[in-house]
Design a protein around this nucleic acid. Sequence first.
DNA 1: TGACATATTCTGCATATCCAGAATATTGAT
DNA 2: ATCAATATTCTGGATATGCAGAATATGTCA
Lengths: 153, 153
Amino acid sequence: MSKGNLSPEQRRFIDDLAGLLSAWSMPGNAARLYGYLQMMNEPVSLDDIARDLEISKSNACTAAKVLEEHGNARRLGERGTKRVFYVAGDDPGAPLRKQAQTLGRMAELITARKASVATGAARERMAGLAGFHKALQNAMEAVILPERRQDAA
Amino acid sequence: MSKGNLSPEQRRFIDDLAGLLSAWSMPGNAARLYGYLQMMNEPVSLDDIARDLEISKSNACTAAKVLEEHGNARRLGERGTKRVFYVAGDDPGAPLRKQAQTLGRMAELITARKASVATGAARERMAGLAGFHKALQNAMEAVILPERRQDAA
DNA sequence: TGACATATTCTGCATATCCAGAATATTGAT
DNA sequence: ATCAATATTCTGGATATGCAGAATATGTCA
């Protein structure tokens, strides 16, 4: 049953997880593929994806590329065959690195220019805002960067 | 110059910050209003916004509502006048509460159902994933919830 | 080289989003 | 009650996104 059609529970799980992932505005097909990969024990081909998720193969390809791009999935190049396989990414923090980096850039931007665009209380508010962004970046990176799995609290 | 037209530096800052905010897929007008509010020392009216940001008043209204909805801006109701004023929100973490909450829900969803949708290594990967989400939620909330400004690191 | 399997790109379409300006509603003053 | 000022909602259009299926490209084996 690892590769055949999915069970109702599996389908429900995939859809529910995709619903939550939409909060990150991840496309529907990519979100469902994300949940699918998480529950698979072996690498899956585009045909597996298309069949189990009931989407066209071209969209399976596109969704897989999206996840690969974001670091949510890894592609296994094959020798001796053209078939590509995908597995869940081993570093769940990878997709968030860019966001953390953006936080840092916002902090820098605000810090660097606050004196030339604001005065008085606004300038102080902006200093606080930059500090907040920096603190959030640091907090996220403490969880994201290590690359080792974390234990739940 | 607190209310008149903006200086070139201010315009540039607003646009640069809005560019970064697009990473959170915030609409352009709302993102620019966000930067505008941060640099203002006094509450601004919709007319101020429309004039300084060079957008229609209806969109100024919409953008303000978006920010208010997300907790990025606060509206000041007036007595004796119909005019509404907006100021930058005093809690920069407010917009991220929902995301942190979603992280928690993902952790719960995965924990609750992993046993019914996956076996073996996949089940363990999902346990690790849930732990990661929970850890990230905790890290974010440590910065977000306190409501006091943070100092930069 | 030829035939086949597979991945990828292309095209069209349906949908959602965002914006501007017009139209409408709501509030305060006279 | 009426008017003036303001906020809000309503239309339309332009743009972007995501999807399916067809068409194309690429690699593998005989």
